[in-house]
Simulated scan of single mutants.
Amino acid sequence: MAIGVPMCVECGTRSNPCRCKVVGPTVGFLAFAAAALVEWPVGALVYCFRHMKGRRIMAHPATVVYPAVTNSIPI
């Protein structure tokens, strides 16, 4: 049984001469997963009392964490 490392590739970008990014999206995915591990249970708990606040907490990894990390690494 082989265990692989998740690799994310984003082609068609203009942030580098190769027009492909591998490191940024991969690190962004790992940061997304780490943030989601914490924020989704917290967001689910908050959602029971304040629906919109809970939704914003659960959406934070996808709307803020992943794009910020991916865009900060140009390769």
Rank of each mutant, 00 (worst) to 15 (best):
residue 25 P to H: 09
residue 74 P to W: 04
residue 54 G to N: 13
residue 52 M to G: 07
residue 55 R to N: 05
residue 45 L to D: 04
residue 36 A to Q: 05
residue 36 A to M: 08
residue 49 F to C: 10
residue 21 K to V: 05
residue 23 V to M: 11
residue 1 M to R: 11
residue 54 G to H: 13
residue 4 G to P: 03
residue 38 V to Y: 07
residue 5 V to Y: 14
residue 19 R to C: 03
residue 25 P to Q: 12
residue 23 V to L: 13
residue 58 M to P: 10
residue 41 P to A: 02
residue 72 S to D: 09
residue 42 V to P: 10
residue 69 V to I: 15
residue 23 V to E: 13
residue 59 A to M: 06
residue 12 G to F: 10
residue 53 K to F: 07
residue 59 A to Q: 04
residue 41 P to M: 03
residue 64 V to A: 00
residue 52 M to W: 04
residue 57 I to P: 08
residue 62 A to E: 01
residue 26 T to I: 05
residue 22 V to A: 11
residue 48 C to T: 10
residue 43 G to P: 08
residue 49 F to H: 12
residue 6 P to E: 02
residue 5 V to A: 03
residue 37 L to Q: 05
residue 31 A to L: 06
residue 61 P to G: 01
residue 18 C to G: 04
residue 38 V to M: 11
residue 56 R to S: 02
residue 59 A to W: 00
residue 8 C to F: 09
residue 11 C to T: 10
residue 67 P to S: 05
residue 36 A to P: 02
residue 40 W to P: 00
residue 61 P to Y: 11
residue 47 Y to P: 04
residue 63 T to C: 13
residue 48 C to V: 03
residue 28 G to E: 08
residue 70 T to R: 00
residue 18 C to Y: 04
residue 63 T to L: 14
residue 13 T to M: 05
residue 69 V to L: 08
residue 39 E to Y: 02
residue 38 V to L: 15
residue 49 F to I: 01
residue 1 M to A: 15
residue 67 P to Q: 05
residue 50 R to G: 02
residue 72 S to P: 01
residue 2 A to H: 02
residue 5 V to H: 07
residue 73 I to S: 06
residue 42 V to I: 15
residue 10 E to L: 14
residue 20 C to L: 07
residue 16 N to H: 09
residue 54 G to T: 11
residue 57 I to V: 00
residue 72 S to N: 11
residue 26 T to D: 02
residue 34 A to R: 07
residue 3 I to Y: 03
residue 52 M to R: 13
residue 54 G to M: 13
residue 10 E to T: 12
residue 19 R to L: 05
